[in-house]
């Protein structure tokens, strides 16, 4: 019974839009909204308390205050984002500091990173996926300072992976030799999370 039942006339939110065919990974639908998904209460860290740290298997450990961080060269990027809960949002405009800038002059001794955040959230990624112009620490969205509910003052932005990897309220990256499952990865979500290969869950 359950399992084969179909709800008459139910299509879900998805609309097939030929204009964006090829831009949306399998199983995703395009939304004009920016849904909020949080694993905990929204922290409110003031710029005075905020800093960003690169630590773990790196030499040297680096730390930037908000002022130092905001003085770094910045990029404006327009990217599509894909949430594992099946919405995609196209042409989102962000401003942030490239992780290439942050890793300049640093010798990593591991192939993985764990992003850590205010509120205790973590997520794991291969180091190579956050370098070479693929990842930013974003502090503005749509030409406005990043709202706290979307991860402000700053969030990780790794648009080529499912959006839970783009950790909100990020405060640093720990370089590790082995891949260590983060918050959702230790609850069955995929360690890599490529939306184009539909790597939603462990084993996909």
């Amino acid at each position: 019974m359950a399992g084969s039942f179909i709800s008459r006339g139910f299509r879900g939110r998805r609309r097939e839009d030929p204009a964006v065919a090829g831009r949306v990974p399998p199983g995703q639908y395009v939304t004009p909204d920016f849904p909020v998904l949080s694993a905990g209460p929204t922290p409110h860290t003031s710029p005075r308390e905020w800093d960003f740290t690169l630590n773990g298997a790196v030499d040297p450990v680096r730390r930037w205050t908000w002022e130092e961080f905001r003085a770094l060269p910045r990029d404006t990027v327009t990217v599509d984002i894909h949430c594992v809960t099946k919405w995609s949002k196209l042409d989102t405009v962000w401003e942030g500091v490239s992780l290439d800038t942050l890793f300049a002059g640093i010798e990593p001794r591991g192939a993985f990173v764990t992003a850590f955040c205010d509120g205790g959230y973590t997520t794991n990624l291969p180091l190579r996926d956050v370098l070479d112009g693929q990842a930013w620490i974003a502090f503005a969205y749509g030409e406005e300072p990043l709202a706290a509910e979307h991860g402000g003052p700053a969030r990780l932005l790794v648009p080529h992976l499912y959006f839970w990897k783009s950790a909100k309220w990020v405060r640093g990256l720990t370089v590790t030799e082995r891949d260590r499952p983060g918050f959702w990865e230790s609850l069955g979500y995929h360690d890599y999370g490529d939306p184009w290969r539909e790597q939603r869950y462990q084993g996909d």
């Binding site: 039942f5 179909i6 709800s7 139910f10 299509r11 879900g12 939110r13 998805r14 099946k86």
Partner: peptide
């Protein structure tokens, strides 16, 4: 739970 013809659920 709603299920669409292609198996999508909400």
């Amino acid at each position: 739970r709603l299920t669409a013809e292609d198996g999508y659920q909400a």
